[in-house]
Design a protein around this nucleic acid. Structure first.
Lengths: 341, 341
DNA sequence: CTGTTAGCGCTTTCAA
DNA sequence: TTGAAAGCGCTAACAG
């Protein structure tokens, strides 16, 4: 490492004051009103000498670091990167750092990651997952304040922030209903996960409120792949009474749906309307026609996560132990008005 | 922060030895051969007490941390996440940590990020970019060993690791040539960036070696979007002598190409062959037919980056100041044998 | 208003 | 083979 070693003592000597004074000035402690002149002199000296504070020393002496630990599989699985982005940003603004530790599926990895992070004196912990689900939090995470992002623990011991899947499913269906569709298909994103359950629940609710009946045959199970979207769409469109619109459980499914529709000689956004979910930046805006979809608010979740953590660290009481972030629609061109006759 | 504070002194007391001995045992210093019995006793005590080493203290005392700083826009722009993954992994294996600092386009940001990282006593620095290009390195990065990943500085002062764009372009064209295509189109990924120049150079070389002539009209400029792929393909296919295969500058362009081809009533991977570039995991394997493409070796670059850094930190001499990592082909189903008559 | 002083928890040299 | 002791660079009482 080495780096040149200009210490606070050096600065003090150069400025002809004591270390304490330097510490006060450099940390902007206005309490003790130090004359502007000394201030200047110290700042000048620090600059001249190329002084750089030693964070390790500071952490050791003050018993608090400027770290938050982020344990996540996202670092290795590039789906929800925006949570890192959001968290990073929020932390950075408070002069805090994010220590990102990878967490592979590999069992025990989480625990080790948390352990490492604790050794680094992180003041708080965020555990974030790539897809919304229940997790079991490593026991040692209890050593410091800890919040969950895009996941939650079974008994709600830890505050968490998750996407509003139900609301997302609701608007997805509403978009279709508002466009005049009454025969709406759905290809689920998977089976038995919060995303599927929530989105489907929201959809049903919206449909009900719009007085639309949806036969069970109109809901076909998918597995999140384009392939399942392709086949699901074929299944739906080969029914005696094929839907005029399909709510796809995610964007990749929508991608497969596009292919199936086009192969049938139909046009997406004209003959058949499609709504996706996730708003994957590399996909949705580049499909042809551009996909209307529901966004997963990753960045906001990351932000909310560190805000929450900040509160906890500062000891503020926490009102909402489970924060739900809305999934906003991204209207593009895959939905057509229907049946306005 | 707080955490419980079991210190080394506590462990020493519990084990009935001195702090030094504890330090030695816990750090696995075999030099001074401490009896197995004492060893056990110490480890036991540490475990019983729930001792957790304080990294700040260690860093301060030893004057070296287990951090590498990673300054990158990748954290905020989710394209090349695998370099973080690779770097993370490599660092982690050596018991090192990666401190990921976001670097937005915002000028001055890099400098500040590096500064923060240096304060944290990072032993080395990696600067990584989302797309392969020349950058100017913040001056303060010179304070510790520093390597560039997926980018390079104008005068090669810093060691760097970059993808072999030329080799990638070469195999892309070769795949097509080997499949019997002689009339090959190319839609560039952009204009004047290393990716475009390298890929095109490699393609030309392969074509030349295979005795294939490529008229300039067969190279149409793109801008990396699906749209440009769509229109580029239309341009190419509406020529009097349309190509039977197209090398698309990246996967998104290929996506647009697929659409154009299908709209013309042709079939990708049968009538027209396509090769992409990047191997974007959310795209390439999900296209229909699955896209044959060339992978960008992000993970390997990340790995190579920290290996390099490790060498530098240990003072080993560095042979290659510019490491080039190969871009391996991912053969899938978008290339057809051609003209075997 | 500024300086003195005592650590923070650990490493490491030097003795015993 | 183990222990004592001196810091690492900084913070934070407490004096002056």
């Amino acid at each position: 490492m080495s780096q040149q070693s200009v210490t606070m003592a050096d600065v003090a000597k150069a400025a002809g004051v004591s270390r304490t004074t330097v510490s006060f000035v450099l940390n902007g402690r206005m309490e003790s009103s130090i004359p502007e002149s000394t201030r200047e002199r110290i700042n000048q000296a620090a600059r001249d000498l190329g002084y750089r504070p030693n964070a390790a020393a500071r952490t050791l002496a003050s018993k608090r670091s400027s770290w938050f630990g982020l344990v996540t599989e996202i670092a290795t699985s590039p789906f929800a990167t925006d949570v890192i982005k959001g968290a990073q940003q929020a932390a950075w603004e408070d002069g805090n750092f994010l220590l990102v530790a990878p967490s592979d599926a590999e069992p025990g990895m989480d625990h080790r990651a948390v352990e490492k992070l604790l050794e680094q004196q992180v003041g708080g912990l965020i555990i974030a997952t790539t897809w919304h689900r229940e997790i079991t939090v490593p026991a040692n995470a209890r050593a410091v304040p800890c919040v969950l992002v895009n996941c939650f623990d079974a008994d709600g011991e830890f505050p968490s922030v998750v996407p509003d899947e139900i609301g997302g499913g609701y608007v997805a269906a509403e978009i279709l209903a508002n466009a005049g569709h009454t025969n709406i298909g759905h290809i689920t994103v998977a089976t038995g996960i919060p995303a599927q359950i929530g989105r489907q629940t929201g959809m049903k609710q919206a449909l009900r409120e719009h007085g639309i009946e949806q036969d069970d045959s109109k809901i076909v199970p998918g597995d999140g792949t384009a392939d399942s979207g392709y086949h699901g769409t074929q299944t739906l469109l080969s029914q005696p009474d094929p839907p005029s619109a399909i709510f796809c459980g995610n964007d990749r499914i929508a991608m497969g749906a596009y292919d199936a529709i086009k192969e049938l000689g139909l046009r997406v956004g004209e003959d058949i309307s499609i709504v996706g979910f996730d708003d994957q930046e590399i996909l949705a805006p580049h499909m042809r026609p551009k996909l209307t979809t529901i966004a997963l608010p990753f960045e906001e979740m990351g932000l909310a996560g560190v805000s929450l953590l900040n509160q906890m660290v500062e000891g503020s009481p926490i009102e909402n132990r489970q924060i739900t972030i809305g999934c906003p629609p991204r209207i593009r061109s895959s939905v057509a008005l229907h049946g306005q006759r």
